[in-house]
Design a protein around this nucleic acid. Sequence first.
DNA 1: GGCGCTATTGAAAAAACGTCAATAGAATGG
DNA 2: CCATTCTATTGACGTTTTTTCAATAGCGCC
Lengths: 200, 200
Amino acid sequence: MAGVTTRTRLSPDQRRTQLLDLGVRLLSTRSVDELSIDLLAEEAGISRGLLYHYFGNKAAFHEAVVRHAADDLIAQTAPPTSGDAFERLHASMAAYLAYVEQNLAGYLSLVRGSAGGSEAMREIYDEARAALTDRVFDDEHDGFRVPDTPLARLVVRGWAAMAEDAVLSWVLDPTGVSREQLLDMLTAALPSLVATVPEQ
Amino acid sequence: MAGVTTRTRLSPDQRRTQLLDLGVRLLSTRSVDELSIDLLAEEAGISRGLLYHYFGNKAAFHEAVVRHAADDLIAQTAPPTSGDAFERLHASMAAYLAYVEQNLAGYLSLVRGSAGGSEAMREIYDEARAALTDRVFDDEHDGFRVPDTPLARLVVRGWAAMAEDAVLSWVLDPTGVSREQLLDMLTAALPSLVATVPEQ
DNA sequence: GGCGCTATTGAAAAAACGTCAATAGAATGG
DNA sequence: CCATTCTATTGACGTTTTTTCAATAGCGCC
């Protein structure tokens, strides 16, 4: 008959990731207050109550979604281990770009959550950013040096903001710029910017 | 006596700007879904209904607040008219920095609204950014040339993202970097980045 | 001092968020 | 193959927040 609803019972892990994946997808097009728990529950084929059982409240769910997206980004853009600083930088940017291209929904819900949301969200975002920049400069600095001064940190941080903006802009509208051009530009930008900072 | 509430009747313009100014202030510390119309109305000394009379619904109010902040930013960072490209660039950055320092609340509610919010919000933010970058390169380009190619636009846009990030970071925590150091860094960064772009 | 315009209110409906005891899959043991 | 137990899941209910709208009251004008 119509409306025969057999509830499907999953393991907590399965259900949790199902809801997080769905959240990532839905939050890539709407903002968080344009997404009602009602819609989410219907889309997932569950009751509202279940979402609260897993995440407590809406804000906590949103935070979990953003963290989920961030973890995915960090995991999938593994740090390059071979080559000099330049090569590692280039490979790191390529991996980052590839991730944004292949996982636009997840990336967008991460970016959206970060700026608009709470303090906790911004921390998650900063972690993700740090994972992209720090890993290149952790160890030896063969290729070019980055002095560890407040101004240099401002520059590197600013460069990361530039890279994020440029990558997203390009993915959303790549007309007129090739992938290699973009990567070369971003790779060249960092040493070029660092060079303008006084050594000490 | 206690609770004597004489309603104060303002002109629509006065009330509108009162509510927008208040909204800017309140939205600099909370996110939009942490701000109830109830609190806003109480803080403004009006009824909830009046806010809906003026703005229709909460989302529209939020958008109006963000637009208000953006207009303020654009107006208060007037374009410099004298000097060569370098001097104009430096003056423009100084005006921008001064605005963020003196008007942190308004700037924060603008930034917060843009990333988290709807499509309309992002457009407002892009307008504000364009107003800051375009005006420096509108007319003559004495000092350094910026070829009008897709890649160059990506670079300039990225530079703006870097400037926004660096300025906000510095204002929130200026330890170790002087104002002039920051301004010089940002001013030097643009031509340095542009130089890495092929002329044609 | 009364009159009309409209800015403003307050109560009540609608929608969204959050809670919790009751329900029913699925595995386990007999 | 049935009964039992465990717990993932539900659905109804209470609370908070948003939104609507007819009634109210400040303020200028005659």
